[in-house]
């Protein structure tokens, strides 16, 4: 496929570009670079490691064992009667995807400065492609979770068709936050620490190690504005058949996620142009 060999192609570089021009078509046009970046990240991740790809499983499993030991057996946190390992892991998996993805997207521009300052391509490709590794890890954890679910005797149902939607929430939320943060982070590396702290807070503000039932009734409408609480309880609804009621907070939190994502696109588009000059 040799394109534009006959059509005259004109590239204009100008001082001032309107802030609202996202050039998404340009990024879509160059999506092959996105695949290449994603593949580079995944294929280099496990090189020079004896256990290679298995580490993608060991990490969440270790976390699960620690959590089960501490919260399930020592502290005996109530789980509405569900076995603690499968209950916690169903919460942990969307959270890990969200937290790792937020970190990768936020750091993506900074980490790729060497490439960015030497060759031009639509920069949006960088944060988007940085998601690939975390999605890849998440798919592997999903296999572990499914075996746990089957082991504990929960049935597989048609609800599983909604799994991509609930797993899509952490991806979009992470991308939205990451887009806001990644370009300013090139200039202010301080943001790395801010993101890390916020993720710590977020972990305890989401029903991962405990059940949302433990949250005081009057706080629940605010608590459930957190899109991650919907992602987590959605996965539990699908896999463990834990009842789920879609309140007004659900729609608000989805709207919030979407708003962060769309505004993130603009913030990114404005600030990435400055990133090469301020690194």
């Amino acid at each position: 496929m040799t394109k534009n060999s006959d059509v005259p192609l004109i590239k204009i570089i100008e001082a001032h570009q309107p802030w609202w021009r996202l050039n998404l078509a340009d990024a879509y046009d160059k999506r092959e670079i996105c695949y290449v970046f994603a593949w580079r990240k995944i294929s280099t991740l496990y090189k020079q490691k004896a256990l290679g790809i298995v580490w993608g499983l060991i990490e969440p499993l270790a976390l699960l064992i620690i959590m089960t030991a501490v919260f399930g057996y020592v502290m005996r946190l109530p789980t509405n009667g569900y076995p603690y390992p499968v209950y916690a892991f169903a919460g942990l998996m969307p959270w890990l995807l969200f937290s790792k993805a937020t970190t990768s997207v936020s750091n993506s521009l900074m980490e790729n400065m060497a490439v960015i300052s030497k060759v031009y391509f639509p920069r949006l490709i960088i944060p988007v492609s940085s998601l690939a590794k975390d999605i890849f890890d998440s798919v592997m954890s999903m296999a572990v979770l499914l075996s746990l679910v089957v082991y504990y005797g929960f049935p597989l149902s048609a609800k599983y068709l909604l799994l991509p939607f609930f797993m899509g929430i952490p991806i979009f939320a992470a991308l939205g936050i990451g887009l806001w943060v990644s370009a300013p982070m090139v200039r202010f590396r301080d943001l790395q620490h801010v993101v890390a702290i916020c993720l710590q807070v977020g972990m305890y503000a989401s029903p991962i190690i405990y059940s949302a039932k433990m949250v005081p009734e009057n706080l629940l409408p605010y608590y459930t504005l957190n899109p991650m609480s919907w992602a987590i309880d959605g996965v539990r609804w699908i896999m463990l058949d834990q009842p789920l009621e879609f309140t007004i907070s659900f729609y608000l939190s989805m709207a919030l996620t979407l708003a962060v994502f769309i505004s993130g696109l603009f913030i990114f588009s404005i600030f990435e142009k400055l990133s090469v000059d301020v690194q």
Partner: peptide, 9 residues
Amino acid sequence: GVTMPSTGR
């Protein structure tokens, strides 16, 4: 295209 100009085109 790596960096934007401040003036001109």
